[in-house]
């Protein structure tokens, strides 16, 4: 029995070491990026403990590419998508959760199709649509295909369904209109779901690349990811340290927010995953 216990302890400590090792591997790319970005170029591939620190790489990266404009574009993109998503998904989710009408289950099934056929798959045809609408190379065009999010509709519908009917009935007796009920009963009670969906949406669109690459072709519309890809392309001839500095600049806002509100982020992703 004692041997068994010791064996168990040994296997547990072995497992802990494996866990720490894997965790180390997982942050290694970020650690390297920090190393290269904060040291002069000659130390980018030489690891000496007392290599001098510098901020020059960040300054150079900031000068060599219009990062400020890219930040603005990404900010506009992410907020506009989120706002429209909130409105569209709230209305649709309310309809699915609390209204009975013919064709409802077919409509719901059709909405769920978008979980499978995401805009990434339809870049070819959506590009044609955008050029017919005269929207190529606009921030609006990046956001449009994502605004009616099946994921958001589904998530909010699940939440709305858990809200007791009695609350709605009470509000009706008080003389509240449909909009007031939605705005004063459903939306406030679904706040955790909005936060969860919001964080997932923000991190998705902050990091999204393929469609923005296809639909933009100028500095005034390109989001950070696309700007970064052009900046970091081997043809651009920029050196390692500066590329990693630029990379860190681009990911910094989301990364810092994540480190500060780690628990909230992780719980939001969990919440969004359970449904």
């Amino acid at each position: 029995m004692i041997i068994n216990l010791q064996g168990r302890k040994f296997s547990i400590s072995l497992e802990s070491s494996a866990a720490y090792f894997l965790a180390f591997l997982w942050v290694l790319p970020l650690i390297y990026a920090l190393w290269a970005a904060f040291h002069p170029a000659e130390y980018a591939t030489r690891f000496e403990l007392f290599a001098p620190l510098t901020l020059d790489n960040f300054a150079t990266a900031w000068e060599q590419a219009p990062f400020a404009r890219y930040f603005l574009n990404t900010f506009l993109l992410v907020t506009s998508i989120l706002l429209v998503q909130f409105v569209l998904c709230t209305l649709a989710a309310y309809s699915f959760a609390r209204f009975e009408f013919p064709g409802k289950s077919i409509a719901f099934g059709l909405v769920l199709i978008q979980l499978m056929i995401m805009p990434e798959v339809l870049i070819v045809e959506n590009y044609t649509t955008m050029s017919n609408l005269g929207l190529v190379d606009s921030i609006l065009a990046i956001g449009l295909p994502y605004m009616a999010s099946a994921f958001g509709i589904f998530l909010l519908r699940q939440t709305f369904k858990t809200i007791p009917h009695e609350l709605e009935d009470a509000a009706k007796i008080e003389g509240c209109s449909l909009w007031q009920i939605l705005w004063k009963v459903y939306v406030p009670l679904a706040r955790p779901t909005y936060v969860a969906f919001g964080l997932v949406s923000i991190s998705y669109h902050w990091n999204n690349f393929l469609w923005p690459l296809v639909i933009t072709n100028s500095v005034t519309t390109r989001p950070l990811t696309v700007g970064l890809a052009i900046f970091g392309a081997p043809e651009s001839g920029v050196d390692w340290s500066i590329i990693t500095a630029g990379t860190l600049l681009a990911v910094a806002p989301l990364l810092v927010a994540f480190l500060l509100f780690q628990r909230q982020f992780v719980q939001s992703f969990m919440h969004a995953g359970i449904k």
């Binding site: 309809s95 056929i117 009616a148």
Partner: peptide, 30 residues
């Protein structure tokens, strides 16, 4: 009541039509 149900659904449906269903079918046709 039924009408409200449909109307609430309308905005999202328009977006899905334009950027999911239509392009799927148009891709097939093309």
């Amino acid at each position: 009541h039924q009408l409200y149900g449909w109307l609430l659904l309308l905005p999202a449906t328009l977006f899905l039509l334009a950027f999911t269903y239509y392009p799927t079918l148009a891709t097939l046709a093309k």
